[in-house]
């Protein structure tokens, strides 16, 4: 068959794989829903989880799609569509595609030259094998890991709860720290920090509305509003910082 990065047969392969992923989501959703009801959780609370999860997902999903657009210029649509829909993340897939492209003597940025079939095949293998760690490891160690954590928590319930909170705090600390990673570059390196502070400030304002002014309905939207608000503010912040930095040069 003649090769093209947008060959219809590639779309069919991707669609089949994604149908299985949707089936897995539905399967686990139904099991968890029944389980939650059996554990005595209120149906209204579960619908709240569904609603807030769906709303929260919209903006990050759009940014994932922007990753698909960026990669599709060189790789066509099917491969980025698959890689960013299953396991992948923008932060992994773009460097993986670039490393693979370099390995076969091209670059993702070089959109003027078409990929040959062997080059495309090499890139697809590298991008697929690169993200297999979680797929192989999770089923191997998930049960042991959870049993271990559970035993540990049962010895001291209060400490078990604190341990979980500390684990989340560790994760958030690492990512908050990373946001400061560019501050040595000068004012432009502070843009992520300013955006983070805007997001935090919006969240605090929303907390005032929710707690003090009793606007409970805002609870489901607080995280998406703080995120979208800060992203919108990132545009004037970046323009202002660039203008100041440009003026200094």
């Amino acid at each position: 068959m003649e090769f093209s990065v947008n060959s219809p047969v590639l779309f069919v392969f991707v669609a089949v794989i994604l149908l299985f992923v949707v089936a897995q989501c539905v399967f686990f959703l139904l099991r968890a829903w029944k389980r939650a009801l059996a554990l005595g959780l209120d149906k209204r609370k579960l619908w709240r989880v569904v609603r807030s999860s769906a709303i929260f997902t919209i903006v990050p999903a759009i940014s994932i799609f922007i990753g698909v657009i960026a990669l599709s210029k060189k790789l066509g649509l099917p491969l980025p569509w698959l890689r960013l829909s299953v396991i992948g993340a923008i932060t992994y897939e773009t460097p993986a595609a670039e490393a693979a492209a370099k390995g076969v003597g091209t670059s993702i940025g070089d959109t003027a030259t078409l990929l040959t079939a062997p080059q495309y095949s090499a890139i697809a293998w590298v991008m697929t094998l690169g993200i297999m760690a979680g797929v192989i490891l999770t089923p191997l160690i998930c049960k042991k890991l959870l049993t271990g954590v559970d035993k540990f928590k049962k010895r001291d319930t209060k400490w078990g709860e604190i341990l979980m909170s500390a684990l989340f705090m560790g994760m958030i600390s690492a990512f908050l720290g990373m946001i400061f990673g560019d501050v040595h570059e000068g004012l432009s390196g502070w843009i992520p920090v300013f955006v983070m502070l805007c997001s935090a400030a919006i969240m605090l304002v929303l907390a005032v509305f929710i707690k003090l002014l009793k606007q409970k309905w805002l609870e489901d939207y607080a995280l998406p509003i703080s995120m979208v608000g800060a992203m919108a503010l990132a545009i004037p912040i970046t323009n202002a910082v660039n203008a100041v930095v440009g003026g200094l040069v």
Partner: peptide
């Protein structure tokens, strides 16, 4: 610039 700052915008509120 908005989509470049997705993670700071997310982790600030969270």
């Amino acid at each position: 610039p908005a989509f470049d700052q997705l993670l700071p915008a997310l982790f600030g509120g969270l």
